[in-house]
Amino acid sequence: MNRKIFIIHSSEIIRKGINAILRSYFNAEIIMLEKTEELKAFCELKGQEIVIIGENITATKINNYKLLQTNNEVKWIDFINEKEDRDEPLPFCKFYITTQTGAVQLQKMVSRCLNKTRKQTQNNESEELSVREKEVLKLVALGHSNKVIAEKLFISIHTVISHRKNITEKTGIKSISGLTVYAILNNLIDTENINPEDLI
């Protein structure tokens, strides 16, 4: 899952200051915006962990970004400008900060926003294909359809599809011709009798 931190504040020194505090601490892309409205341009984001540090967040402001919140894991941190009177942070904000907040405190807050949703997406399995996957890959490279592969290996089409998904995840290669090159490089196909150019 990708992570993003938005810093939205009208003051440039505050934006850059917060950026400097967070930049070296988190492995996340930091985006600085001047106005909340500029967030609209990011409504296409999907499946990301997002922390938004915004200046004087209000319920109406947040309601404009429903799509962003549905498609992503969004946490808000309210930046309260001192002069404005507000006794408590808004209920939907996880934390609030002011100019009095220390750098370490802020880092802790952001880290708590991110840690809760942290998932181990990185699988540490080796990319080595199983014997069955190699058999499937070989048949894919030879240009057979899922149906034919299923018949040849006496497995269901559903199983073939799931093997193919695993092969692509392990190798990082999606296209059939790309997989064919991989199969040839790994000697899964005997190129003595077949011209590889016909396959790729």
Binding site: I173, K174, S175, S177, G178, V181
Partner: peptide
């Protein structure tokens, strides 16, 4: 998607497997 996919595969092949 097809055109982009292949370009990415080309990169993968060179970086990881050759």
């Amino acid at each position: 998607s097809n055109v982009e996919e292949k370009l990415n595969d080309l990169k993968h092949l060179l970086i990881k497997y050759i």
